[in-house]
Write a protein that binds this DNA or RNA. Sequence first.
RNA 1: GACCCCGUAGCUCAAUUGGAUAGAGCAACAGCCUUCUAAGCUGUAGGUUGCGCGUUCGAUUCGCGCCGGGGUCACCA
Length: 552
Amino acid sequence: MKKYLTEKFIAAFERLNLTPETKLTFEKPRVEAHGDLTTNVAMLMAKPLRKNPRELAKELVNALQLESDLVSNVEVAGPGFINFRFTEKFFNRQVEQILREGDRFGRTNIGNGKKTQVEFVSANPTGPLSVGHGRQAAIGDTIANLLTWTGHDVTREYYYNNAGRQMRMLAESTYARYMQLFDPTYPFPEDGYQGEYIREIADLLKRDRGETLRNLAKEEALAICKQVAEKTLFEAIKAVLARMGVHFDVFYNEDSLYTTGKIQEVVDELRRLGLVYDQDGAVWLKTTALGEEKDRVIIKSTGEPTYRLPDIAYHREKFRRGFELIVDIFGADHIATIPDVLAGVRALGYDPEKVKVVIHQFVTLMRNGQQVKMSKRAANFVTLEELIDEVGPDAVRFFFLMRSVSSHLEFDLNLAKEQSEKNPVYYVQYAHARIASILRFAESEGVFWSSDLHRLREIDFSLLKEDSEIALVKLLLEFPELVESACCGYEPQRLTNYLHDVATAFHKFYHDHRVVIPERDLAQARLGLCLAAKIVLRNGCAILGITAPERM
RNA sequence: GACCCCGUAGCUCAAUUGGAUAGAGCAACAGCCUUCUAAGCUGUAGGUUGCGCGUUCGAUUCGCGCCGGGGUCACCA
């Protein structure tokens, strides 16, 4: 549609001897009465040419030479918009294209095979995933899907740290709980992990190893505690993610950056660049020389690095591994760490523009209109697993994706569980199931063939003329472009909104017109439209990572 | 104090990335099932887009300044 008009405009510019420096864009007007597509190019060109925008628009329209069987109306409107309305034929002949492309409809190749990494979740194995991690998992996985659909070569990566203070505390906590099984007065570390899951791991240790840990030296026992706790927690994390349909290609261990000398390399190189100095027993990065407010410590006086150093080394490895686009999904609490890492990357000679950081805001759970209070310290927070148990994986993913990532998300547990049209997940899925039901019925009546693409050309889609038919067709045709823009802006909520619109358009069509009717030709055209809608809903759900049920 | 996100219908949020008359869903009210799934559809009502300047043909969108909510500013991650 846009391509067609673009070609016509370029020809028109030549005829008028114009060489426009402004961009030629078309968009769908908000108001239906303004046509199917509109362009503001006359308004943009008018100023440098010192012409009246409406006059210029009229000249352009006269030079366009459009086919009248494809474009039914062209008009100059408002301050100089040029509005186009296409014929039913123009739209209808593209329905067949949707059916032919099927599972591939909506895929584009703007990514051109670009090697892309999406890093998300990246929680250390010190406890169960929270609902916040769940939002991140849904966002990251869906962005990865969107990138795949737009032709990027995507790697999903989970970065974790199984060394350091947090893991030491995990081991201490587990050890203490284990010892308490034999001696209830055994002291628990002051800022240990309070959660019930630590006791469960301790129980596991006792079951598998009996009292053997008590007889070991503490350091030795701690090593076992750490190993068992880490393994148990990681398995739990992966299992929960799997329930959400999230699978990673790479689990990248921070510790490997030390063992392979990558950390030392970064320090040496930054030092050679004169960006590192020693003070108060610590090693500092001269972030002020890189445009930051203050210098930052990268190695503490204890000899332990701060998170910045491995993060910089890790991002350097991302570049070295050949990624041309690096997408980091972080929670809002990590926002302050980003400038340091990007500054480090730039100092090491890599282009920080290739790193796209998606920051998402927090989640609050609402139950019966009340906020569910959560405290990680008291360990009375709702875990992601509990949330999935309560509302199901589809609702979890859809709800996490409904809002723009930069907005706080209010998760209404009552609504998510409700099996009615109020619940947007069911609303969208129901449209899909309803279509499936119609197709089954049609097949049982012998009206349709569900899997014979060769017979497509027998369908006369020009029979689709009713308002709600055409409205649905137009909306379906927007799908590929919508996938692109949702991808480019890293805005999954555009897709959930769009699918809701598609469902609405379908339900309205269903309500207005019966599909399986005696007029065989029209019945087949409508069934073709149903199938096209089903394809868009199914493909959209696939990107969102939710199921598209055949019956409900 | 500095920086980041948010502020849109009573509530939760959209808004084609600067477009024409700001839209959905809840909640409220009034209707629609001998029919392919009523988990659906239709209608009514609801607004000075937090406030004020500015940029321009045009601002919910961009810039500046206020006000309000959340977050971050470690030799924690």
